[in-house]
Write a protein that binds this DNA or RNA. Structure first.
Lengths: 150, 150
DNA sequence: CAGTCAGAGTTCCCTAAGGGAACCCCAAGG
DNA sequence: CCTTGGGGTTCCCTTAGGGAACTCTGACTG
């Protein structure tokens, strides 16, 4: 194998990258999320090579992140987020937040997010699912888990 | 250019990918985070080609995610997270959470995280920085921001 | 003080993956 | 029955990743 396969590593980050770590995959998910769900739309919006788009879509469908389904009597298909894929949008929002904070420059962020619950333009923050307090790099200790390598 | 450059897109996700979207980059950051900070350590732990490791480290240093600094009188260097880099660990924790949830299988997660604030084994969750309520794919509307393309 | 050693890269060759353009297939519609 | 448009395939070319060998540098070692 030429490109190293991360899927077999005993690391959930590596395994996640095996699913969505290839170039373009997160942008494809972003587009599907915001409503560009068809092959031609994705190709036009992203400017991606059709060959690579085909490969990525197949990969994402195989890994149950997207579902391919017909939207017409004719052989026309759209791609929609599965439950797994919908969960990945959390990751996209955190990515967008980092880019907004560190890379947006003078003009400010190109896209903002209105949160339905409070109605405000806001951003995604990371918190502990147990106690609800902020959870950042220095706030945790990584420890071997049950699935650790023998 | 052969590999498409995402940095010029009016999208913070694309811009973030321009910084850490290449293969191996997130795993390098993970390793630096948990304490593998030197060239030889990274190479041995990841099994990455030395050539590619050199390229990735330079790229991450250029983008101010890592800092290269000497740790000896001899020409020996270690890589440490900058403030930008430390912020990126949020992203890694969300990635790990997704992998734990969807890819860990029977054995459970290979690594778990103990949160200092509450002392519990926990996970990273995404919440609105404004109101503190959960913030997922269906909870937001993306809208054009001040830095939107003309 | 020549020889060795370890860390931190470079260099080179080979293969595979991305870019781009052209081509193909199929079902409707005119 | 010819065109149109969505959704891909195919082909060729270039570049990026893998892997192994090589280099450079400042200690240590006898």
């Amino acid at each position: 194998m030429q490109r190293t396969n991360f899927g077999g590593m005993a690391c959930s980050i590596a395994r996640t990258l095996d699913v969505i770590g290839e170039p373009w995959s997160p942008l494809i998910l972003r587009d599907v999320w915001v409503g560009f769900t068809r092959f031609e739309q994705l190709q036009a919006d992203l400017g991606i090579s059709r060959k690579v788009l085909t490969e990525r879509l197949n990969h994402l469908v195989e890994h149950d992140v997207l579902e391919r389904r017909p939207y017409d009597q004719r052989p026309r298909y759209e791609y929609v987020l599965t439950e797994r894929g919908t969960d990945l949008v959390d990751l996209l929002m955190v990515m967008a937040g980092w880019g907004d904070k560190w890379l947006a420059g003078e003009d400010g962020p190109p896209v903002v997010y209105r949160h339905h619950a409070c109605g405000e333009i806001s951003a995604a923050g990371v918190r502990c699912t147990h106690c609800g307090e902020p959870m950042h790099a220095r706030d945790v200790d990584p420890l071997p888990g049950p699935g650790a390598a023998a």
